[in-house]
Amino acid sequence: MEKILWEQWMLDTKGYTLKSGYELVRVKHQPIVWHKFIWNPWCVPKHRFICWLIIREALQAKSKLFALVICPDELRLLCGNATETHLHLFEKCVYSRSILQEMATLCQMSIPDANILQWIWQQKWSKARKDIVVCAFIACYYQIWMLRNRSRAEHSLPRPSIALNMARNSAKLRISVLKKPIFRSLY
């Protein structure tokens, strides 16, 4: 592979330049399109941070802790079945899914089976509606993570309706604090 790169660089019609050499060997990634979506000012900052970690799969789910020999098992804390991974915890878990479905009902929408935030991003809604829906779902993800941690520490799990109310109240409070007339009229 290196020989091919070298030959391409040497046979470049523009001649030898440092820029052409750099462009040849650098790794090109897809542009990040979700950063403005996650870091919008309508979401509570700690919710945004947890969501950023979720997207990067950087939270310490039990599958990671088990692989590092930090915890004795990798069973899911919320539903008690098989392996706890990011995908399961925030998209597939029955407990989490019930919270997300109820939030979708409150937002008067139906959600797909996977990758809810990407689905919201692709919708042709007004910016105001997207901001409200993103704020609500990111609050849900935050509450799911906090309840997962609480269940680990206290060995008890509240009903999904409690998590939904906590997420709803924090999103509602954040939106009302920003005092935009369009948002106050929507709830």
Score class of each variant (00 low, 15 high):
residue 1 M to L: 08
residue 1 M to E: 11
residue 2 E to F: 15
residue 2 E to V: 15
residue 2 E to C: 12
residue 2 E to I: 11
residue 4 I to S: 15
residue 6 W to V: 12
residue 8 Q to E: 15
residue 9 W to Y: 15
residue 9 W to M: 10
residue 11 L to H: 11
residue 11 L to A: 13
residue 14 K to Y: 11
residue 14 K to W: 08
residue 21 G to H: 08
residue 22 Y to K: 02
residue 23 E to V: 07
residue 26 R to C: 11
residue 26 R to D: 02
residue 27 V to D: 05
residue 29 H to T: 12
residue 29 H to Y: 13
residue 29 H to C: 12
residue 33 V to I: 10
residue 34 W to E: 07
residue 36 K to S: 06
residue 36 K to R: 12
residue 36 K to W: 06
residue 37 F to S: 04
residue 40 N to Q: 14
residue 43 C to M: 07
residue 44 V to A: 04
residue 46 K to T: 04
residue 47 H to A: 13
residue 48 R to A: 13
residue 51 C to Q: 12
residue 52 W to E: 01
residue 54 I to H: 00
residue 55 I to L: 12
residue 57 E to W: 05
residue 57 E to D: 07
residue 63 S to K: 14
residue 67 A to P: 04
residue 73 D to I: 03
residue 74 E to C: 15
residue 77 L to S: 08
residue 77 L to M: 14
residue 78 L to V: 00
residue 81 N to S: 14
residue 83 T to W: 09
residue 87 L to Y: 14
residue 90 F to Y: 09
residue 91 E to K: 06
residue 92 K to A: 15
residue 100 L to A: 13
residue 106 L to F: 14
residue 107 C to T: 02
residue 108 Q to Y: 11
residue 108 Q to H: 15
residue 110 S to T: 14
residue 111 I to F: 02
residue 111 I to A: 07
residue 112 P to N: 06
residue 112 P to D: 06
residue 113 D to C: 14
residue 115 N to M: 14
residue 116 I to D: 01
residue 119 W to E: 01
residue 119 W to L: 03
residue 122 Q to I: 04
residue 123 Q to E: 01
residue 125 W to G: 04
residue 128 A to W: 01
residue 130 K to D: 02
residue 132 I to M: 09
residue 135 C to K: 03
residue 141 Y to P: 05
residue 142 Y to L: 03
residue 143 Q to S: 14
residue 147 L to S: 13
residue 149 N to L: 09
residue 151 S to N: 11
residue 151 S to K: 14
residue 153 A to R: 15
residue 155 H to P: 00
residue 161 S to N: 10
residue 162 I to G: 04
residue 164 L to K: 09
residue 167 A to S: 05
residue 169 N to K: 07
residue 169 N to Q: 08
residue 169 N to I: 05
residue 172 K to G: 09
residue 173 L to H: 12
residue 175 I to E: 01
residue 175 I to Q: 05
residue 177 V to Y: 12
residue 178 L to G: 00
residue 178 L to Y: 05
residue 181 P to Q: 00
residue 181 P to M: 03
residue 185 S to M: 09
